[in-house]
Simulated assay, not measured.
Amino acid sequence: MNTESQFIYAHDPMCSWCWAHKPVWQRFAAELVDRVAVVHRVGGLAPDSDRVMPVAQQQAIAGYWHQIQERLGTEFNFDFWTQNEPRRSTYPACRAVIAARWQEAELAMISALQAAYYLRALNPSNVDVLQQLAEEIGLDGVRFAADLASEKLAQALTDELNLTRSLPIAGFPSMVLWHRGRYHEIALDYQDYRAALRQVVALLGDSEREGVAK
């Protein structure tokens, strides 16, 4: 593994395109694990808000879900829009990811958040849902609740969002390789990761190409 480089997956746990990309990303990440350190960094699509989304905005986002479903076959539970009071607020879910990271369970929390939002029609903008998910994945619930409300975590989120926004990306999900003092945006395809893998291998100067799909 190239220990001087880092692969950054920039995402938001409530980003529908990140959900759509998950199957391909998981296969890609498995190819990367022995080549370069992989980290996830949250993007913070929408700040904290107690306002219920306007109906037009709810319809627009539900429309994106339909488009993704039709294009990629991604599963969505549209009951979310009738069983909740949706808010345009993803910062709580982003904080939950960081709090879980502090308990060595970042990936489990990302998966739990996505399943809650897109399959279980639960609202990850709500703290009680985040607490429920933390306990479902086996986190220390008391520690999680304290971390979630702490100034330390608020600052960690601010720092992470500043980093993500400094990357050479235009949206989420995005992939960036830090290598030899430079950020390199990696091409993202929702159906095939092989071109991205070839790009990473070339940038790393890896001569061992047996693991690269032709």
Score class of each variant (00 low, 15 high):
residue 173 P to K: 03
residue 179 H to V: 04
residue 76 F to M: 02
residue 191 Q to R: 14
residue 85 E to Y: 09
residue 144 F to M: 07
residue 10 A to K: 01
residue 77 N to P: 07
residue 211 G to S: 09
residue 96 A to C: 06
residue 61 I to D: 07
residue 153 L to P: 01
residue 200 V to P: 06
residue 207 S to T: 10
residue 161 L to W: 00
residue 125 S to I: 05
residue 122 L to R: 14
residue 1 M to P: 14
residue 128 D to F: 13
residue 174 S to Y: 00
residue 30 A to N: 12
residue 214 K to E: 15
residue 6 Q to K: 15
residue 126 N to P: 00
residue 180 R to V: 00
residue 34 D to N: 14
residue 196 A to R: 10
residue 47 P to Y: 11
residue 150 S to T: 12
residue 148 L to N: 06
residue 15 C to I: 09
residue 196 A to T: 02
residue 92 P to I: 03
residue 65 W to I: 13
residue 185 E to H: 13
residue 26 Q to H: 13
residue 192 D to N: 15
residue 78 F to Y: 15
residue 95 R to L: 13
residue 72 L to D: 13
residue 139 L to W: 04
residue 25 W to A: 15
residue 206 D to P: 02
residue 173 P to W: 01
residue 32 L to W: 08
residue 126 N to E: 15
residue 15 C to P: 09
residue 91 Y to C: 02
residue 110 I to Q: 10
residue 172 F to Q: 02
residue 186 I to Y: 03
residue 72 L to N: 10
residue 78 F to N: 01
residue 114 Q to T: 06
residue 141 G to L: 08
residue 98 I to T: 01
residue 99 A to R: 00
residue 47 P to A: 09
residue 73 G to A: 03
residue 144 F to I: 11
residue 143 R to D: 12
residue 188 L to W: 11
residue 116 A to K: 01
residue 202 A to N: 13
residue 170 A to N: 11
residue 140 D to T: 07
residue 197 L to P: 10
residue 175 M to I: 00
residue 86 P to S: 02
residue 65 W to D: 05
residue 193 Y to H: 15
